[in-house]
Design a binder for these strands. Structure first.
Lengths: 344, 344
DNA sequence: ACCGGTCTCTCCAACGTTGCATCGGCGCTT
DNA sequence: AAGCGCCGATGCAACGTTGGAGAGACCGGT
């Protein structure tokens, strides 16, 4: 066990409380005293014991980030952004994975999670609107994603509908008319999830361009198959069925990368025969062959906002600000898969 | 603030310590008492305060994982594996990123890191053999990767040399003779890092096949450019220089994916004109066009071993086992980029 | 019936830190 | 010169938990 405040106090010739005051930047400490204490801290390589601090003050300086899986590039990059944002505020990040399982997601927000996180950033994929109540408990919580709206917590999401609309408009601009959508929600209903919101943007873009919607172009893919394999399968099947299309709007980049692969295997040239746009702007899309045009949803900003809101909630005393929803700006990143060569 | 042991004790009609005993599976508690306590715990939704436990027992149940960046697929997948392995033992994982910077790496193992992690898994890229001493401090530590050998800690690494040799032998088996190596260390010396160890495997394979080494085929790439862009650049340059080659051994999958892209752009067919093998077996390599043959280095096993060793160190009392090095088995995963269609 | 040992549970103290109360001294106002 | 308020520092208690010691009940062997 390392040195404690007591040791620092002894070396600096002050009381333990004064050491605490210096560390916490309490203003009424004479510069000379402060220096002596800091020198002693350095000399002993003293570091505060976060357990003790957490016990006494109720703060540990650690927040949680709960995502489906770091193997999905989007979430790995989100985690990277969150860790960077948290670090700026001196917070550590404990990462938990749910594999997208309902069980695990419920566990993450409620019981059995030991008490020691100052707050939680939570990106559910299985919990839905009907579980909004489950989020009412358990300390500062900021929600990421679009599974649950109007819940009791702050919520950082993205301009799903308008950015999807812009994506489709981009395909229209490059002259496409038979635009397939890959990644539609295979379930009934119009629950406000990523799929359905982006679908609405697609429909709206077509409507405004006076293009009739052909249901055969709307290709369902369960969220659990929102990966390269799922995208490839969907594209293969569409071709197998003889569907006529000259563009694909993939509802995620990984779906889009799978589509690119399948189109290559089927001998369709991208973008000549088929233009493809993805969604998320993961690092990888920049390096695929061809590179993938996509929607940048402002991931870094999402992370920064989420961390800021969470910190605000953590510091909240009695008066509680009502829950808010935040949506950073998006932009279309034009790349080879829609006929451009330079990004940005 | 939630219920405490005191509340549970009151409801169950026992002492606080008995509650503690039940929670910690102390054997001498009557089943009836245990049930009453468990019922009270459930009823109150009691969860232990890890700060208090950590303060009293010196354990927090959280380990650290320090990697360069989660944006690199290899490390994202490693983090995934570590988190899963740790979860099996009831441990949480706090992830820190260093961006591969020496400063940040030194900070991670030594001062300023607040005391509350039970132990640390550390994967340095900038620290080298000369920094081995810096690792002597600061509690349980298990090293990942091949930057530092013979240090004062346990070390989980991989069969770099023999698996690289096997990779090159695979290329020889499919009839290639002019095998380029992309990702060599541009610096002088033969420090035992990933690059140089894999280079040795390459050299040994050629030697055993009685093929002369052509230095022009050994292409340097700084570790900081071990990504798709770096691989693409290296391949482009090699073609620009008019180098004759019929295979590429990329020292990482991301380098290999960049090579695939560049070869496509240059009109070289893979595997017909050039066979390519990567290293790491990241998820993505399975879905590239063409899919990338690679070396699976046993990432899950690395994570499991590392967590197990770390836990063992954490539980170590006085007698210290001398530091050990572990290397899980590897295997070659044959895919399209060397002329195979089925993985496994 | 007695004794030693085991089982079940309890009491007390301690982990390292910070919130609160307080205290002497100094400078400024009246 | 007395009073007031601020500055700089201190001491004490408390956060929720667990280690250790120990008390009483119970058991089996003699």
């Amino acid at each position: 066990m390392g040195p404690t405040m007591f040791d620092v106090a002894r070396v600096a010739g002050v009381s333990v409380k004064t050491v605490s005051n210096v560390i916490n930047h309490y203003p009424h400490v004479r510069p000379g005293t402060r220096d002596r204490v800091n020198k002693a801290i350095e000399q002993l390589d003293y570091r505060p014991n976060l357990s003790a601090r957490g016990l006494r003050s109720g703060r540990t300086g650690v927040i949680g980030l709960t995502v489906p899986s770091l193997r999905e590039n989007y979430f790995a990059e989100l985690a990277d952004a969150v860790i960077r944002a948290a670090e700026k505020h001196g917070l550590g990040v404990m990462v938990e994975q749910t594999s997208g399982q309902r069980e695990a997601e419920l566990r993450a927000v409620s019981s059995s999670r030991p008490r020691f996180l100052d707050g939680l950033l939570f990106s559910p994929v299985s919990l839905g609107q009907e579980d909004a109540a489950a989020l009412a408990v358990d300390g500062p919580l900021v929600l990421l994603g679009e599974r649950i709206f109007g819940g009791p917590t702050d919520h950082v999401t993205m301009h799903n509908m308008s950015s999807a609309q812009a994506a489709v408009e981009h395909l229209l601009e490059v002259g496409r008319r038979r635009i397939a959508l890959i990644g539609a929600d295979p379930r009934e209903g119009d629950e406000a999830n990523s799929s359905n919101l982006r679908l609405r943007g697609y429909l709206r873009a077509l409507e405004q361009a006076d293009i009739a919607v052909d249901p055969v172009l709307i290709r369902p893919t369960a969220m659990s198959h929102w990966n390269r394999a799922g995208g490839a399968t969907a594209a293969h099947r569409m071709i197998e069925e003889g569907v006529d299309f000259d563009a694909v709007f993939a509802l995620s980049d990984t779906l889009g990368l799978g589509v690119l692969r399948a189109l290559g295997e089927e001998g369709r040239r991208v973008p000549d025969d088929v233009a493809v746009i993805g969604f998320d702007n993961i690092d990888e899309s920049q390096y695929s062959v061809p590179s993938l045009t996509t929607v940048d949803t402002g991931r870094d900003e999402i992370a920064a906002i989420a961390v800021d809101r969470l910190i605000e909630r953590i510091n909240e005393k009695g008066e509680r600000r009502p829950p808010e929803t935040f949506k950073p700006a998006f932009r279309i990143v034009r790349r080879e898969s829609t006929g451009f060569t330079e990004a940005d």
